[in-house]
């Protein structure tokens, strides 16, 4: 990949990649949630594009964008399933880290330091856009979701997850995750920017998309694991929306 890079920098990025991918490290909450996110994403993509997940390379021929790719926790599984993946992150330091890990994993992924808006302006389009835990961090969610719509091919799909805004999500996501469990650095989330499912559906529609599904990601403290719920969208939740075919 990059041959002109300083060896000391490579060592630093390798250490950061190891940190990103350590299931018990700094990103433990993301690793715990990841199987659940992948179950939802793979099921939605397979259903929309008529793919059999038990077959070889089920996402062959699909172009997938992972917005806010970080170390590549979603990009790598998509590539492993056969998709052509672009991983975008506004944080420049994540890009070499994700690249190093993909190479260690034997996967080819196009990681770019860019934003959804910049990709849309460049005319890039994808069969599926993964928009996971990003919308609550952007300054103008409506403008951002409109840019996401431009990134979708007609008939394409977007999976968008975020955090609900209610007293429970304040207790769980801010007090619980940031202050008590220290899962996330304090100040990771601004509760006032959390979005209710109805608000998100309205924004998706305003952006010109058809929201077709919503589910909750629920943490079960007894099993210490996450599961997908049809009814409980009170804290973490996920949606699927489609771009009309023409």
């Amino acid at each position: 990949m990059q041959t002109t890079i300083d060896p000391a920098e490579v060592a630093k990025f390798e250490a950061m990649a190891a940190e990103w991918w350590d299931p018990n490290g700094k990103f433990k909450p993301l690793h715990m949630l990841n199987p659940c996110r992948l179950d939802y994403i793979t099921a939605q993509v397979a259903a929309e594009f008529g793919r059999d997940l038990a077959g070889p390379s089920p996402f062959d021929g699909l172009r997938i964008l992972d917005i806010g790719c970080g170390g590549g926790l979603l990009s790598e599984p998509m590539a492993r399933l056969g998709a052509e993946v672009v991983g975008a992150d506004a944080a420049e330091r994540n890009i070499p880290v994700a690249r190093i890990h993909a190479r260690q994993s034997g996967l080819q992924i196009d990681y770019r330091h860019t934003t959804a808006e910049a990709l849309a302006a460049a005319g890039e389009q994808f069969d599926a856009v993964l928009n996971m835990e990003v919308v609550e961090h952007v300054a103008d969610p409506q403008a951002y979701l409109t840019a996401c719509r431009q990134l979708m091919k007609p008939g394409g799909l977007m999976v968008c997850s975020t955090l609900n805004r209610n007293p429970k999500s304040y207790v769980m996501a801010i007090i619980g995750a940031e202050h008590v469990m220290r899962w996330l650095p304090k100040g990771t989330h601004d509760w006032s920017k959390f979005i209710t499912p109805d608000e998100l559906f309205a924004m998706l529609e305003t952006a010109g998309l058809d929201p077709v599904d919503r589910k909750g990601f629920v943490f079960n403290p007894l099993g210490w694991s996450w599961s997908i719920s049809d009814r409980d969208l009170s804290v973490n939740y996920v949606t699927t929306s489609l771009k009309p075919a023409a």
Binding site: P56, D60, R103, G106, Q108
Partner: peptide, 17 residues
């Protein structure tokens, strides 16, 4: 084994079960 091309797996990784 079938050798269905997996385009986004790097070269040299094909013979891995």
């Amino acid at each position: 084994m079938d050798n269905a091309p997996v385009r986004f797996i790097l070269r040299g990784m094909e013979d891995i079960r």
